[in-house]
């Protein structure tokens, strides 16, 4: 049974990344985000889910509808059990990469959402929380 307000998607394989994108798109459509905002959310989810998979040895994503006094938003939380990030500021800088990627994933996703929070503890894992408001 899926709750109307929250859903958890596992991220263990690359097809889970596809699934995570599909879920975020579905939620963004249901919440009537504009096409541009839908695309931004889905793209950010794609980057962060892949980060969780490739650098964080997998984990999960929680999708949640949130609201403050004035507006609705879609909150995505990515949690992994990876080695964590020792220097978060460096990781957010464009061009920073430990793998073979472009090094734009984290910084890029930050620019695609309104709120961006990253908590990481070396050895324990990383949690990235993003919100896009309508």
């Amino acid at each position: 049974m899926k709750s109307a307000k929250q859903e958890t998607v596992p991220i263990a394989t690359s097809s889970d990344v596809v699934m995570a994108r599909q879920k975020v798109r579905q939620w963004a459509i249901e919440m009537k985000f504009t096409l541009v905002d839908q695309t931004k959310l889905v793209t950010a989810a794609s980057e962060l889910a892949r980060n969780a998979l490739e650098h964080g040895k997998g984990g999960h994503m929680v999708i949640e509808q949130v609201e403050n006094s004035v507006k609705n938003g879609l909150k995505l939380v990515f949690e992994d059990r990876g080695p964590g990030i020792s220097d978060v500021d460096a990781a957010l800088r464009d061009g920073f990469t430990t793998g073979g990627g472009m090094g734009l994933g984290l910084g890029g996703s930050k620019r695609l959402v309104n709120d961006f929070q990253i908590e990481s503890e070396p050895g324990k894992g990383t949690r990235v929380t993003v919100v896009r408001w309508k």
Partner: peptide, 13 residues
């Protein structure tokens, strides 16, 4: 598409 173009810019590509 326009939304893709915009997203690409934000990503910094």
């Amino acid at each position: 598409r326009p939304q893709i173009a915009q997203t690409i810019v934000h990503l910094g590509i």
